[in-house]
Write a protein that binds this DNA or RNA. Structure first.
Lengths: 370, 370
DNA sequence: GCGGTGGACTATACCGGTTAAGTTACCCTC
DNA sequence: GAGGGTAACTTAACCGGTATAGTCCACCGC
């Protein structure tokens, strides 16, 4: 049984290919009764238009592309991308657009792939992730006039439409939580410095903390658990160790938690731990880790809608991603030294959410006493 | 700057489209000098043949498909699929074949997707994962005459070519390791019973253990950490608890480890833990978990080669996947009760690898004394 | 009764490749 | 020097759709 073509449907219906095309695409040019007859025959034969023929005729590939240049071994531990993909798929499958997903060795290979895809007309546009400070990809995409949308920050997108992640809001949520608990000296193990979101979070972390009257420090890493553990050890052995550490991904948070435990540092009494991006990892360990959760599936879907619009020549209006939510678990709490220090605390209230913080403190003290 | 077509190359070279086509595809019909000239012009213009036009002309889509019907949330924690994808990509990109990767809600949706892909000529074949006991997909693929290769067991593939996972070898490796250490009563938390590999592992586990003179029990699960933890608690609270538990995935192994610790069971002194499929998870926890590692990237590449052959009408020779390797970490050891029981052990040697086991035992005893 | 209008289709060109079937020009052979 | 063979191209059909420009005919108004 061969797969039917539009010609089969046409001859079966006693009309020409054009009439069938009109009928199937809702164009005027056929009467309602003929349209119904053609539709019925098409359904009966199981006819679906050939994607290649359609692509050739209308000049659209009917596909978008996503390339990630991270090593598969690292990627495996990152639920982020699978969820992003799921969101894109869900949106794109509604109009039979498919998604080409590939991993590249490095940015040069990624760029080469864009060139190939575009020249071969395999995709109508691409999604960009992991925006970097001086990103080679953006200039290439511009010169190719290849539709693209980025996930990240408008500041790093070089004019490309963006589904933008509000890193400042994320930092504010986390810092506010820690401030509420009474932390005075906090640290952050950031990601790879050449990524824009790392830079933005580092800046936001410094500013938001200062505004809250909290001492803050950021260090860099490469997202691996080794770095997470090393950085944690360094921070905890310092003369004035922080009472809380924020990690830029879940893997490092888990590794940091282990490292702290091995040094005999109790979590959360001596150290609070927060992860950026929630995942099953955060729930698996003891204590489970407080994490900033983003609706990644929704983000993927937004990106897909945006790229569809851009590829159709429509407007490339930047979209904010949904606000992140802090899932508070057992790895964060009132720091032991803050409890001790409560008595000799200066009388003048701090300006940042001091009421809430005081309330939490009070509740905590009640809890110990009771 | 528009993307050049074969006609642009042809006119620039002063020949016809056909000559260009011959030159680019290494066909006879042009002289060597003309071929070089055409190649140079094509390179200069950055010409690449349109995938749609080529697909239309030669009837090949130039793409394969992979559908997974697991919820994205679960998938995120499974490094398996990303690595499988990476292996496929690496192989397929060599001849410019691309990969369509999608997640489906359930098997019905997956099947519907195959129908659509095939009718629209979007793919030349598909990869099948998670073979089930009575798998609806196989009959559909057969009736569509759609090329496909499966990952799993030839027994469950319904005649489809398979890259087959040697579950028996895996079980043997694990059981031998535990037997060497002196375990006499072991358990396994298996996967979802409707999957073929679960069934095969369960059978193999029973048989291999019996051959080794070891008492063994398998229980079922749904791969979630909740099941992993619950099953562990049940097993450890039994009248005669096992001294080792094997888990069908890494997630459950980690959850089981936590559950054991919470019950005050020491790993590895009171309980050895082994995970099927290695990942970063196994290295993150304390103690790090002994795991069966498979070269998943290589498996993906083998599958891609096989599907390419099958889709070209070639032979569908089943391929064994590379033998799995047991990565021994700190979660497995000589069981405390085996050490105690050493003195009143019967004199007659067990037939299964008794020499090795005795050697390990001896080394262990030396270690405690020294 | 005739030009005009519009609905319902048909005929056909076109998208950008591949490929079977010509068409030359040149060389070799007897 | 005519016949045969082959290398090197060209011509043109074809893949399966979409889109534009007809064609045909019924109906309308005056």
């Amino acid at each position: 049984m061969k797969r039917p073509t539009i010609a089969d449907v046409a001859s079966r219906a006693g009309v020409t290919k054009a009439a069938v095309s009109f009928a199937l695409n809702g164009q005027p040019g056929v009467s309602e009764s003929t349209r119904q007859r053609i539709l019925a025959i098409a359904a009966e034969l199981g006819f679906q238009p050939s994607s290649a023929a359609r692509a050739l005729a209308d000049g659209k590939a009917g596909a978008f592309g996503l390339v990630i240049d991270r090593p598969p071994r690292t990627l495996g531990g990152e639920p982020f991308f699978i969820q992003l993909l799921a969101g894109m798929q869900a949106e794109l499958s509604r109009d039979h657009v498919s998604l080409l997903f590939t991993m590249a060795e490095d940015q040069a290979a990624e760029i080469e792939l864009y060139r190939t895809w575009w020249a071969q007309r395999r995709v109508d546009g691409v999604f960009l992730v992991d925006l970097q400070l001086r990103d080679q990809r953006i200039a290439v995409l511009h010169s190719l006039r290849m539709p693209a949308v980025a996930f990240g920050s408008p500041r790093g997108s070089g004019g490309l439409p963006v589904v933008w992640q509000d890193d400042v809001a994320g930092v504010e949520t986390i810092v506010a939580h820690l401030a509420d608990l009474g932390h005075q000296r906090i640290a952050r193990v950031g990601g790879i410095p050449r990524y824009w979101h790392t830079r933005l979070r580092t800046d936001a972390f410094a500013q938001v903390s200062e505004a809250a009257g909290i001492e803050a420090i950021s260090v860099e890493s490469d997202y691996t658990r080794e770095h997470g553990a090393d950085a944690t050890r360094d921070l905890l052995r310092a003369a004035a160790p922080p009472t809380a550490i924020v990690y830029d991904n879940d893997l490092m948070a888990v590794a940091g938690l282990s490292a702290a435990k091995q040094l005999g540092v109790d979590v959360p009494a001596d150290l609070s731990v927060v992860a950026w991006d929630d995942s099953v990892l955060c729930e698996l360990v003891h204590p489970p880790i407080t994490a900033l959760r983003r609706d990644i599936v929704a983000i993927g879907a937004e990106g897909a809608r945006l790229l569809r619009s851009v590829a159709a020549g429509g407007p490339g209006q930047d979209l904010p991603e949904p606000a992140p939510e802090l899932v508070v678990r057992e790895s964060t709490g009132v720091p032991r030294q803050a409890v001790r220090a409560l008595s000799d605390r200066p009388a003048s209230p701090r300006r940042y959410r001091i009421e809430t913080r005081a309330l939490h403190m009070w509740l905590y003290l009640m809890a110990i006493k009771g």
